[in-house]
């Protein structure tokens, strides 16, 4: 049973993530009156990049090559902890904190590789990423605290074990709203970052990976879609009660796809924030999570 579940989760984590950028792209294309790239475009991109060679600047060190690998490894381990439609088979009490730190490790690896490139653009990107994620992290930790208080569990399986709207509806709205903002910020989406822009001076996440190519870039693309899937899965499990069995997979998949479409709708209906305003919105997410903690403590 456990082995089967592990295979099931592993296969989904390996195969599904690149679909999400496709859904977001299609949604944006519909709003823009375009056909847009096919749903499976990210798979093609990743496969193409894996087959390519990489070019490394002579000014970089091993850190530059280690960055994408370490980052992806950390995200994959984090993926093993996250419950999808069914509970994660490799769960233990306290894995929620490990999850947060694994995301931090992935980010650290990306930032260190960016700084290693020695370009002023990448340095700026790393500095922005560090500044904004330091505001996104408290929101996650506070949301985890509220969930711990509400569910009594210390593992992601228990904390995100099925929405109980009748018991703590207000808290769920606050946590859900806060985590959605964190999802947008962590996955460098509008209004925090613009993954579609070509203007390197305005980028946050994309600019850190400008010097990576070939398989390294494939790792980065796959890693970022995996990260989006993990966050989406947590949000879906937080907000939607999942039935057991195959129906659970159907509801979960629908939820994750709907969340990706929601990201596309947000991106199509508003402009990106001025960079000085980003912290203000992230503080909003922190406040929402803090209020959820208060509700849970009452």
């Amino acid at each position: 049973m456990n082995v089967l579940a592990a295979f099931e989760n592993g296969a989904v984590l390996l195969l599904l993530p690149p679909l999400l950028p496709g859904i977001i792209g299609k949604t944006k294309a519909v709003f823009g009156g375009r056909k847009g790239p096919p749903f499976l475009q990210s798979y093609h991109d990743i496969l193409k990049l894996v087959g390519k060679g990489a070019v490394y600047s002579r000014t970089t060190t091993a850190m530059f090559r280690l960055g994408p690998v370490l980052s992806l490894a950390a995200l994959m381990v984090a993926g093993a902890l996250v419950p999808l439609a069914h509970d994660s088979p490799t769960s233990f009490p306290g894995d929620a904190l490990l999850f947060a730190y694994l995301l931090g490790l992935a980010r650290f690896a990306t930032m260190a590789a960016a700084l290693d490139a020695g370009s002023s653009f990448e340095g700026m990107g790393a500095s922005r990423e560090a500044a904004f994620s330091s505001l996104a992290e408290p929101a996650l930790v506070l949301a985890l605290a509220a969930l711990f208080r509400a569910t009594g569990g210390l593992s992601l399986n228990r904390m995100f074990g099925g929405a109980q709207w009748s018991v703590s509806g207000a808290g769920l709205v606050l946590i859900g709203g806060g985590l959605f903002l964190v999802l947008l910020s962590e996955n460098s989406r509008i209004p925090f970052d613009d993954p579609a822009t070509h203007l390197e001076l305005t980028m946050i996440h994309e600019v850190m990976t400008l010097d990576h190519g070939g398989p390294d870039l494939a790792f980065i693309l796959y890693g970022s879609s995996l990260k989006l899937l993990l966050w989406s899965s947590l949000l879906v499990r937080l907000l939607v009660p999942l039935p057991p069995g195959a129906l659970g997979w159907a509801v979960w998949t629908g939820g994750v796809a709907a969340l990706a479409a929601a990201v596309g709708v947000v991106e199509s209906s508003m402009a990106r924030l001025k960079m000085t305003r980003v912290p203000q919105v992230l503080v909003l997410a922190v406040c929402a999570a803090a209020f959820a903690v208060m509700l849970a403590l009452k």
Partner: peptide, 16 residues
């Protein structure tokens, strides 16, 4: 300008 602030649908409309 719409494109630069990431407001893509309007950018496409203006382009047309």
């Amino acid at each position: 300008l719409s494109n630069d602030v990431g407001f893509l649908p309007v950018a496409a409309y203006f382009g047309r």
